[in-house]
Design a binder for these strands. Sequence first.
DNA 1: TCGTCTTAGCTATTGACAGTAGCCAGCAGG
DNA 2: CCTGCTGGCTACTGTCAATAGCTAAGACGA
Lengths: 189, 189
Amino acid sequence: MARAGLTNIIVVEAAERLIDEPDATPLTLAALAGRLGVKQPSLYKHIGGMDDLCRSIAVRAKLELADVMARAAVGKAGGDAITSMSLNYRKWAATHPGRYAATVRAPVTGDAEDEAATLEITKVAFEIMSGLGLRGDDAVDAIRALRAVLHGFVTLEAQGAFALPADIDRSFDRLLAGVIASLAGWANS
Amino acid sequence: MARAGLTNIIVVEAAERLIDEPDATPLTLAALAGRLGVKQPSLYKHIGGMDDLCRSIAVRAKLELADVMARAAVGKAGGDAITSMSLNYRKWAATHPGRYAATVRAPVTGDAEDEAATLEITKVAFEIMSGLGLRGDDAVDAIRALRAVLHGFVTLEAQGAFALPADIDRSFDRLLAGVIASLAGWANS
DNA sequence: TCGTCTTAGCTATTGACAGTAGCCAGCAGG
DNA sequence: CCTGCTGGCTACTGTCAATAGCTAAGACGA
């Protein structure tokens, strides 16, 4: 039997593609193996198991999201940076629902790589907030606020919770503008 | 063998208690049956299956959350109503994590009871927004905004995503105050 | 080219889970 | 008392993650 030539990264990337597909059936190793032309137990030669696979996806997704956020804010300052970052955050979450869900998972305590990836997002957020003049606890509050807003909106949108017949983009833009105006005011408090 | 005397409502309530326990292991029918002193297949005499059980929990949880929100806003107006409602929303979500998660599930199209329960929450939200002078699309935008904020914050908090050493209550209060100030301004736009 | 070693993929199996089939005993109503 | 209903049971299937152990593909050195 010709070998499939799998590697850890090939398996992980295939899983990422699988969970980001629109119909979004829950990830199973059998489905993943089938997609790779291999039987389910063969995957264990390349991943430690389901938990390990999900962790790999989470770490990579966090780094990817941090990158999306950082690139969106390049060359922008203050509210403009937040707006651009938020729009790209929402867009990436919408086009990568599975990966986005993975970014929310808190790292297991002691998992240095996962903790570093999580910190990467926080660092980008801090840098963007510093452009609004926010430091220390103010910045923490601001990051939590913006993250809650983005995560809440994106999650509800993905679950089809915004059923009412009104433009969702407009709702998002208004919410974002309001939050940014709030955050801008915190710098003086 | 003495009968256990189960009914649909007894099973559903036991499941609710199970998913709201702090250690939060995923719900299984075997665990639920064990809790009720019965074998797993016996549950099928009282519920249609896992999907049906989750749906029952969701419907009841939505009605319960709508009630929590409505009671919190009794006798209050405008920003005070929103603040009180939000504080109680967050508190209920924190003390009933499993039930709260169930409230987010969008109803299956055509499930009248679930759709009605979902609408109940929306109705309460509309009433509270009308106290801010918000109507029509403004109210829809406001509801989406507040819901995103509350859901995002509560979800991230439940997942331990707020790791930074800063007071979470303070972050919540500031975010809430900012959002309310924003919404109040929308009435004139 | 051949021999050897590593290892990728396989089959077979276990154990947890949801769900179904079919049995039997508790109990109610005549 | 007896008859029918039904709640709980055992026994089973199929799907899932995961493990054990086999075999052959392929790399590498002599």
